[in-house]
Write a protein that binds this DNA or RNA. Structure first.
Lengths: 118, 118
DNA sequence: ACTTTGTGCAACCGAAAGGTTTCATATATA
DNA sequence: TATATATGAAACCTTTCGGTTGCACAAAGT
């Protein structure tokens, strides 16, 4: 059972849950009320989020409040960061060229690749 | 069949493929040579990456070169960004408190949960 | 022409994901 | 105490995921 942040945020429902918890802690029922799926389904998502550290569940009486731990997203941020410089560097110079490559997906020549068509 | 960048980068193998393609385009066989899994498995990962725009496959003779389109990661980056400010804002003030909450979450005492310790 | 190489895809498989219903239990309230 | 509420978890189901083997086909090399 793989439980990492990347896998946790892969599900759109869990991302939506995170956005709800970003502003304020909520208990499971309050969160489940905003979705079409059952409370148990939301609870499972919440468990996954808590297992990877993105959410902390704080029991308070019979209600268990779920708090987002958004700083856990820094793991993803750091992973992105290494490529961010990369693509931001290229963005102005190489993007049009790459875009051109994608458009004409046809065979091309590896040596003289810089030529401009159209 | 959900094909978005979040789901694509959820798999560690696919993230590794992206890191290989970041420096240079490679054909499927060259990529597959670096993994324990079969070429077909790598091909499937590559297809998923290309379906969500993270990779472009450029046929070149009988070899198909796979090029990373890392700027597609900006989608994830933008999603992270909205929370980044959030957590970086809190980082100094609230982090210790939240950290404390998480630490005492382990023992799970359902009865008296509201007490402040320390 | 024949063979090798690189690829795409179908068929299949076990495990995991995401969902449901149901039940047990702890807490709050009448 | 009795009842309603909020939760956790088990059992089960269906679909998807990640992997395999096998085959067909195109391009390159002999």
């Amino acid at each position: 059972m793989r439980r990492d942040v990347f896998q946790a945020i892969a599900d759109p429902t869990r991302r939506q849950i995170l956005s709800m918890l970003a502003t304020q802690p909520l208990n499971v029922n309050a969160v489940a009320g905003q979705f079409d799926v059952s409370r148990t389904a939301v609870y499972k998502h919440m468990k996954i989020l808590s297992e990877c550290g993105l959410v902390v569940i704080v029991p308070q009486g019979r209600e268990h409040y779920c708090e987002a731990r958004l700083e856990k997203l820094s793991e993803v941020n750091e992973w992105i960061e290494q490529y961010k410089q990369f693509w931001e560097q290229r963005l102005d110079s190489l993007e049009r060229y790459l875009e051109d490559l994608q458009t004409k997906n046809k065979p091309r020549k590896p040596k003289a690749a810089k030529k401009k068509k159209k």
